[in-house]
Design a protein around this nucleic acid. Structure first.
Lengths: 344, 344
DNA sequence: ATAATTAATGCAAACGTTTGACCAGTGTCC
DNA sequence: GGACACTGGTCAAACGTTTGCATTAATTAT
């Protein structure tokens, strides 16, 4: 009548066999006779026995848990990514311990600490926008907790990561605009120091020069993503000497703000001026003038791949106990893909 | 040169004292002399000792982890809620194990199982849209894992929950429309069987009858949230005999679709027809015609409150070991609040 | 001085599981 | 009839920490 959960010890006593026999029986160990095996398994089922995971975690020195640290769940990109992570993790019987840094370095450090304390087997990290110092990641090396970075990658050597090729995505986007006849193409990019901005710019330049159009720096403006700065940039582009007929925007929010500004200026969207963006949001469906096309970054897939990579690392770690510095670092680059929004 | 992490055992050996002394010293136990206490603490720091949480979890039979099961992180409501949960949990040194049901009952069951296996101390659940059968929750009672439900609450007695008063929110919304002079007010509600829809309808009826306007069932249409059904409902309302001058929509997505339909019908938004909605989304800022006002449901706060409640339950559980059926169930209802969107 | 009290520390069990090493039978082979 | 190999099982250590209960040493009260 005791209300605590049953243990193998109890099963053992009940059946008058040893604890180890019970353990092995439950694991289908070959050296246990069929008879006892079934006896054990039946009693276990009857008692609704469930192994005490905390004991197992402890005993094995593993938690079958992977930590995930990302900036902001309310960004659609990351909420998709975490779905990919979750699904991949569950498939391999791992669980997910999650934390948001809210783009604060302090919070990021704190989270790493918590994760370390909880002895997660490995970590998946997309770094905060403001992280410039990477010691707190390096500290984890000592603890032998492998990390796979995704999407937002720190600039340090010898790391594993999964990311999406935004340079190429941008090239695709611009080539698409070429096929639609556009020749003067502007860009409203993000904050200048952001790696994401750099990729887009690189793509822009690459696409333009490859088509023997010269790269006009005046056609690329940075903004800080605020509504005002987007409006300002849009206005500046659309009233400049060379007027673009199409604009590539840093992300969908920027696109929406830019569209509004263009409308204010009495321009006809998709006629006088076209927009192409990067697909962070499902929101485009809900607005009157979504961008003509978007560069899909496959957040779900990125999360999934990152997780699979991490789990692979964990498995090879546990097999070859030789902590050799065999130093192969996974660098997985997914190709982005331009999605043309159908009609309307 | 062994690369494994230091343990209290090692500290003990190094200092020639017993393990228990070390343990107590690290916990500032009063019966340990100041001298040894500092000696221990210094060595611990030097060795960068960190207690092995898995061992502690095991030993204490607690994991200081709370499980969270919710339908869909990509819904802004839930991503805010989880932020509230995280913050509240971390404040009390709990961590969060998260899983999405994606509104699948099967997945929900599976998650509960995982959480149970991982021996979470307690659970926070927002049930899937399709859950009609509640045995999998009741099963947890046996395991003494307390649950606090939030936002989406199952219809069973004797549970703890935190929710937002949508009836009242709807009343406020409609009263607001009254003050703006509207008398004929329509509603595009969600699926009929959803509790959320029922609350809104109740509020609608309550507000109308209280103002001695009669409740006209023809003014309230259900939709299945798809774009088409929203458009259809909007059209029906706006071409009916009594034409509403304002419409309350089930959520922001519905509002946006309805706005588009109204525009298609050459109506001037905020002039010929006004919209009021429920604030699930920050998206309203990014669209040309956001609803005039929204009922704020305070997802962050709901998450926070739910977490605090759960932690309180956990603490009182561990103190009074008497597993009395003292049966006080927390039912926390937050008041929703109408937010009027400024201008434009 | 000696008993009583207090302060500081040590001992050992307990938490539930896994796992390498060992052992008792039983049968087989030559 | 002894060496050999199975088969089916048991024993006990180990994982790192906490904690009730002893134990010792030092101090005080009588």
């Amino acid at each position: 009548m005791k209300n605590h959960l049953p243990t193998i010890k109890e099963i053992a006593k009940e059946l008058n066999i040893s604890i180890s026999t019970v353990s092995r029986a439950l694991h289908d160990h070959p050296s246990i006779g069929l008879r006892t095996k079934t006896r054990v398994q039946e009693l276990a089922k009857k008692l609704e026995y469930e192994p005490n995971q905390t004991a197992i975690f402890f005993q094995q020195g593993k938690t079958f848990t992977i930590g995930v640290i990302l900036p902001e769940l309310s960004e659609a990109f990351f909420s998709s990514a975490i779905s990919g992570i979750e699904d991949a993790a569950h498939k391999s019987n791992y669980t997910v311990l999650m934390g948001q840094s809210h783009d604060s370095v302090e919070k990021e450090k704190q989270l790493i600490d918590t994760m370390k304390k909880h002895r997660v087997d490995g970590l998946l990290i997309s770094i905060s926008k403001n992280t410039v110092n990477y010691e707190h990641f390096e500290a984890l090396q000592r603890y032998k907790i492998p990390i796979v970075f995704f999407d937002r990658i720190p600039k340090i050597p010898n790391i594993h990561y999964v990311a999406c090729n935004m340079v190429n995505g941008t090239v695709q986007a611009i080539n698409f605009l070429f096929t639609k006849g556009h020749r003067i193409i502007g860009m409203i990019n993000g904050p200048e120091k952001l790696p994401a901005s750099k990729d887009r710019l690189d793509g822009y330049i690459q696409a333009m020069t490859k088509s023997r159009l010269k790269y006009d720096p005046a056609m690329v403006l940075n903004c800080n993503l605020s509504r005002e700065s987007v409006s300002a940039a849009t206005e500046k582009l659309l009233t400049g000497k060379r007027k673009p007929t199409a604009i590539v925007t840093f992300n969908d929010y920027v696109a929406l703000d830019a569209v509004q500004q263009a409308q204010k200026m009495k321009l006809k969207i998709n006629k006088d001026i076209c927009f192409v963006s990067y697909a962070n949001l499902p929101l485009s469906n809900y607005t009157a003038y979504p961008p003509m096309a978007s560069v899909e970054q496959f957040p779900y897939l990125q999360g999934q791949k990152a997780t699979e990579t991490l789990i692979e690392l964990l498995q090879q770690k546990s097999s070859e106990e030789t902590d050799n510095v065999n130093a192969t670092y996974y660098k997985i680059i997914l190709e982005s893909q331009l999605v043309v929004h159908n009609g309307k």
